[in-house]
Write a protein that binds this DNA or RNA. Structure first.
Ligand SMILES: [Zn+2]
Ligand SMILES: [Zn+2]
Ligand SMILES: [Zn+2]
Ligand SMILES: [Zn+2]
Lengths: 146, 146
DNA sequence: AGCCTTATTGATAATCTTTTTCAATAAGGG
DNA sequence: CCCTTATTGAAAAAGATTATCAATAAGGCT
């Protein structure tokens, strides 16, 4: 279902600011902070208030249309979200972020931890960090040059 | 190795504020924000500046003596950290947080994602959310009462 | 135990980020 | 095309984090 439909179906309007934020994030390969979103849109002429960026992100996140991802250094940003169970993998060098499908791969771990701790697990946060193909290539080239 | 030793070995002093923050977190069952730490210490007479809380946390986190954990709602807090590969599980109801040992349980998942995405994975962020034993018991009691 | 050096603290101010407020605007149903 | 009302945006308020710098105290040395 399109993000416009998700908004409508939940009684929200498909407004200019929401469209701008949504489309920008969909195009971006990297997570963006509210400020970065504001600046990117301002510079490309399509101005909107900083407040609207915050409000759009809040709503879009609530509806699952965008996701928050955490950088290794602790800062966080937003990426366009896909539906269903999924997680993100971030490049430590260029911050390129892509999504991978969630699976039952954690179920063994979760069972073990439930047995160990007596917690009942219902949810999880998982992100992988590493180096993306492009940055690996750059590293390889640099090494060759030496 | 004790946290005091870690500080010393890295050329830092075992100061009052660092001790207060470290001991408070070690005793706390829940993650705490800088403000919560500041207030808790102030109220128990052992006053220190807000700024010192920030600085202590920054340093302790850098040395791996405390960890940042993310609440399901997006807010974050600090917990006393254990050494080695580990993760945290949080109770969604009372925020009690405990540590569980990391393992190789993600290696299958990581291999799959590396194959799918061509990323080289070096690190990960994992947290589990659920209900702790105490809160399960409360739920059970409540149900019985009905 | 007392002294000295210097890392660390804390009060204040500066900066940055996020939220509130409320009149003006525009989305979308009719 | 009009009307209703959700949404926006400017400005201000509130909240969180960081910089400054004189005063303090940790820990090495004797
Ligand atoms: Zn990269
Ligand atoms: Zn998952
Ligand atoms: Zn609980
Ligand atoms: Zn792990």
């Amino acid at each position: 279902m399109s993000w416009q439909k998700v908004l409508s179906n939940n009684g929200y309007r498909v407004s200019g600011p929401r469209r701008l934020v949504m489309e920008l994030l969909a195009e971006s390969a990297q997570p963006m902070t509210p400020l970065e979103i504001y600046q990117a849109l301002s510079q490309s002429g399509r101005a909107l208030g900083m407040v609207s960026v915050y409000r759009a992100l809040e709503l879009l996140a609530e509806l699952g249309l965008v996701c928050v991802v955490y950088n290794p250094n602790g800062s966080s940003g937003y990426v366009a979200g896909s539906a269903g169970h999924h997680h993100h993998i971030l490049c430590k060098r260029c911050h390129r972020t892509i999504t991978f499908a969630g699976s039952e791969d954690l179920s063994d771990l979760i069972q073990r931890v439930e047995a160990e701790t007596n917690f009942r697990v219902s949810d999880h946060l998982l992100q992988l960090y590493g180096i993306c193909p492009e940055c690996q290539k750059i590293s390889a080239d640099t090494v060759e040059d030496n």
